[in-house]
Amino acid sequence: MSGIIDSFIPVAIFLVFGFVMPVATMIIVKQISPRSQAGRKLSTYESGSVPFGDARIMFNVQYYLFAIVFVIFDVEVMFLYPWVTVYLGVDKFFTTMSVIEVVLFVLVLFVGYLYALKKGALQWVK
């Protein structure tokens, strides 16, 4: 157990460093860079035009369909990760059974994929 924690201690150090370093740099940059106040410096850029309305609109629902399909498949792929490390384990019977199980699993996954494809969930714009 301590082995796992040991291997993640450097990750924690990097995580802290990864947040502290850019923030510290930005503070320094803020200090040494020049500042000026022009009339509309902080206005939103839109090719020189004055933007019309807000950018944060209700976006097309198709994007969210993509995300849902992705979540389904990614979770299913996630189930395969533990399998790869153990399926050649104990004996021949175990291996055969686990391979058959996974083939069935992948088939179900594939049928689901075909269904999503047929329904047009993977179409960019219907």
Binding site: T44, E46, P51, A55, R56, F66, F70, F73, W124
Partner: peptide, 23 residues
Amino acid sequence: GSNNKYSLLGAFRNIARMLGYEV
């Protein structure tokens, strides 16, 4: 976060693209 329309389009494109390739 930028509240810019180009950025927003880019962000959504980015999501759609990354989701397709993560699997």
